[in-house]
Computed example of a mutant assay.
Amino acid sequence: MKTPMARVLVVEDDPSLQLMLRYNLEKLGYKAEAVSDGETALVSLERARPDALVLDWMLPGISGLDVCRRIRTNARLRDLPIVMLTARSDEQDSIRGLDGGADDYIAKPCSIETLDARLRALLRRTQVNYDTLSFADLRLDPETHRAERGGRSLTLGPTEFKLLEFLMRNPRRVFSREDLLQRIWGANMHVELRTIDVHIRRLRRALNQEDETDYVRTVRSAGYALDDAV
């Protein structure tokens, strides 16, 4: 059984292949995002860590192999599951990719079924989404869709649950309204920026009782963060 709503970042510079990968991954139940080059991929990874990375070797600018090596030197990302895609089929290239830090290596063209199987195997191994998330006295279980604070069950709407899950996966990091809208609703959804303020207010009401610390920090002119610093 696949990890529910696993987040996958696809790094592929061929527009048609990128579109195909993203479309098919989403049909299979993943939450897929895509970028076209290594520099953008590294920026995206610093903003928010996905559950797995599908990385093309031959990219403009920074190669996929170099992206992989940089990820493995980053303490926050070094255990990120990486599947490397490449038109190279030589055994030595496969060895270089795996030595560079990839967890798996698939020669193009490959079927979406093969990619799905490899991703599922990596996600089972790392158990990314099945782990209960914790922050201060907050607990959130993505599999059972339950959240609590200090042992008190929280009543959250679907959007507030996704918003809290995202913030708990990226604690103490400030995200703009644009970032949050893209992460929660997706890049292709047309939603007013102020919509995020409505859901933040609802989330705060659900999280906070009298005299409890408000972990959702508003950063003036920047956005929001989940932060327990007082």
Rank of each mutant, 00 (worst) to 15 (best):
E26R: 08
L28G: 07
G29Y: 06
G29S: 09
Y30K: 10
K31P: 05
A32E: 05
E33I: 08
A41T: 03
L42V: 06
S44D: 09
L45K: 03
L45S: 03
L45V: 05
L45N: 01
E46K: 12
R47Y: 11
R47L: 15
P50L: 05
P50F: 01
D51N: 06
D51A: 08
V54I: 10
L55M: 09
L55A: 05
L59S: 01
G61S: 05
G61H: 08
S63L: 06
G64M: 01
G64E: 00
V67W: 02
R69W: 09
R70K: 15
R70M: 07
R76L: 11
R78M: 11
D79S: 12
A87C: 10
S89P: 05
S89N: 13
S89K: 14
D90R: 15
E91A: 14
S94A: 13
S94Y: 07
S94V: 11
S94I: 09
I95M: 12
I95R: 11
R96T: 09
L98D: 03
L98F: 10
L98Q: 04
D99A: 15
A102E: 07
D104H: 15
A107S: 13
A107G: 07
K108I: 03
P109C: 11
C110L: 11
C110W: 02
D116F: 13
R120G: 08
A121N: 13
L123T: 07
R124V: 11
R124S: 11
Q127Y: 13
Q127H: 14
Q127D: 15
Q127G: 14
V128L: 08
V128R: 12
Y130V: 11
D131E: 15
D131F: 10
T132F: 06
S134D: 07
F135I: 04
A136T: 08
A136M: 08
P142A: 00
A147E: 00
R149Q: 06
G150S: 07
G150R: 08
G150M: 05
G151I: 10
R152F: 14
S153W: 09
L156Y: 02
L156V: 03
L163S: 04
L163R: 00
E165F: 02
E165C: 08
F166A: 02
